[in-house]
Design a protein around this nucleic acid. Structure first.
Lengths: 357, 357
DNA sequence: ATTCTCAGCGAAAACGTTTTCGTGTTAACA
DNA sequence: TGTTAACACGAAAACGTTTTCGCTGAGAAT
């Protein structure tokens, strides 16, 4: 077992100074041809690679991005991570992942753990509990310490930073309009509680689409699921709840659900009640994941392009990190100019499958 | 924007030495009550937290675990990550994630990137391309540099390290036996190519279960899918291929598939051909993910307990990391004793749902 | 009065880099 | 011959810690 070799060891072996070794390896003109050859050969032989930690300390940058998300066993989030990792890797960065489990406390702990030098910046999506509490001091504190943050999907106006969001509102409008065009008269909405901003926006889109078509939104046709903060077994009563909903609304011929799980569960319930899809009831979901793709019938969905979100977020963050190297610090002191921060909106697409006509 | 404060700054402000500050903050008895109070108050006020990078450099350990997996948009792998993150966090470690995308080259790049001081040890699952090439030098090289590795799921005998695997063989035996008990006479197997060890083991389990029941395995009833290395769109021809398979084997009344996607696709095809589930054909899949849970009908699966795998792997790794602090180095020099390494086998469970009688 | 002890603190090394600046040698030039 | 310039290299600082060791002064012991 031979430990990793260091500059110091090379220097000692070759009887030169550490500086000479460092310069020779970086191909500095200061060092003679001969010495350079000798050192490079030796280094190659012993597979010398500079120690990242030492470099990080010296350069005061780690070339590492911290990702902080509520949950990883979730198709959307893992797709975003994939996008982040792709561009991070391409641009020479590593990613370190923290999970908040939708908990305010874990979110803070994780941020503090990473903010002490381990990373150069954050890409994160806010936990549900934090959204409920509306306490965002930890984000602002981190930003104030000079560490940039890029938020995605679940974002909030109270924090000044770059953001990448899905056009939830228009995505919903598009989806509900399609149901209307396809002849649906009684379109149900299955959504979450309002404190999750994406749930709220998608609900608003639903209402907007109806209004544009002179249809009055019936409160009966809106089912708000209280998916608890308990991540472990949050889907217990879902099927029963939706079944109850269907039974008390006999005339539903279209369903728009704010995520794919609600959508496939709705399909399941509908068929259990003897309705066929898409003949009797058409269904569109939000979030294009494995369920949508492989359900029977496959589900028409609003795709959020998670990977693109991740890529954009990573590019935004890295751009800002590398700008702060060169740019005048003036740019950053100018904290009260909100316009400094970018908000990227990723358009949605409707992917038509078998659950609509 | 106030940057993070350092020991040096505190020392200057309070007109003491750096050492005094460090000692006072760690509560050393060496420093007087009075000075300690003053320094701790000041540090608290400015929210001092030691810089992780500096600590890493000094302690020559990063308290960070590197995870290297083929793909993250995959229920099993993300479940494992969740398990790793859970115990890592509990034991004071961070996790840094690298994706190989099933590519040999990316696997090596990622390992080299992380092995230069960024992490204390690896938890990984081997990429398909690496399994194909059977080139494992990068793993052994890393281990030789004193960096421990724990492999999970896709492991290989050629590398000496701790391993956490699923009992693929017995899981398959159990599943196929259940189909036989349930009255299936012609059980099909849908599997992958043999170079993925888990595919091979699950195939062997299938054969074993048949043999134990004096049934001769018919080659016709085995469909080997060549899921290409192209991760992007590997599912193109899947449905057609399975449909073809069903058509040329009219008597199939049971299906065992080595992953849930194959299983639900088989169900889809079967129903398309007018067969009902579980009456005409019963289906069991491997890997208990969202698809299994929410398909219609829901799928009976062999659960691999991904989270438990992750937890075990993380505990193994951290145990070894912290043992090497205290233990005599003798323990590690003793490289040729294979018995030093632990292989944990996680038992599978069959989760019965609607796709079996 | 002299030595001893100990409390309280600081200097410095170490972790592994990069980089600035200085220094000695040699060759060229006046 | 003396000055200069280029060349090749080394010393040291810096990044932020922790820790070992040494130092100083004051009170206790002799």
């Amino acid at each position: 077992m031979k430990r990793k070799i260091t500059l110091k060891q090379i220097a000692r072996e070759l009887d030169v100074s550490i500086s000479t070794v460092s310069k020779a390896l970086s191909g500095s003109k200061e060092i003679s041809e001969e010495t350079t050859q000798k050192i490079q050969a030796f280094a190659k032989f012993y597979n010398y690679k500079p120690n990242n930690i030492a470099l990080s300390l010296k350069n005061r940058k780690t070339k590492t991005i911290g990702i902080l998300i509520p949950e990883i066993v979730h198709h959307f989030f893992s797709t975003v991570i994939r996008g982040i990792e792709r561009v991070a890797n391409r641009r020479g960065y590593n990613v370190i992942v923290g999970l908040s489990n939708e908990s305010f406390a874990k979110e803070i702990i994780n941020m503090e753990m990473l903010a002490n030098g381990s990373i150069d910046g954050f890409i994160l999506s806010i936990s549900k509990e934090t959204l409920l509490k509306q306490d965002y001091h930890h984000f602002n504190a981190t930003i104030n310490q000079g560490m940039p943050i890029v938020m995605f999907d679940r974002v909030v106006n109270e924090v000044d930073c770059d953001k990448v969001i899905v056009d939830d509102f228009n995505g919903s409008v598009k989806a509900v309009k399609k149901l209307i065009e396809n002849g649906c008269k009684n379109i149900a909405l299955i959504t979450t509680m309002d404190y999750v901003s994406v749930g709220r926006l998608r609900t608003q889109g639903y209402i907007e689409a109806l209004e544009q078509n002179k249809i009055i939104a019936e409160p009966n046709l809106i089912l708000k699921i209280d998916d608890s903060l308990d991540v472990e077994n949050q889907f217990e009563g879902l099927e029963q709840e939706i079944e109850q909903f269907f039974k008390s609304n006999g005339n539903i011929d279209g369903v728009f659900a704010v995520n794919e799980l609600y959508a496939v569960t709705a399909m399941k319930v509908a068929r259990k009640l003897g309705l066929s899809i898409p003949e009797d009831v058409q269904v569109i979901g939000f979030t294009d994941g494995v369920l949508s793709k492989h359900a029977t019938p496959s589900l028409t969905t609003v795709s959020q392009h998670g990977q693109k979100i991740g890529e954009q977020a990573a590019n935004l963050l890295i751009d800002r990190l590398e700008a702060s190297d060169t740019e005048s610090p003036q740019y950053f002191k100018n904290g009260d100019k909100k316009s400094d921060f970018i908000k990227v909106v990723i358009e949605t697409d409707i992917i038509e499958r078998e659950s609509t006509k």
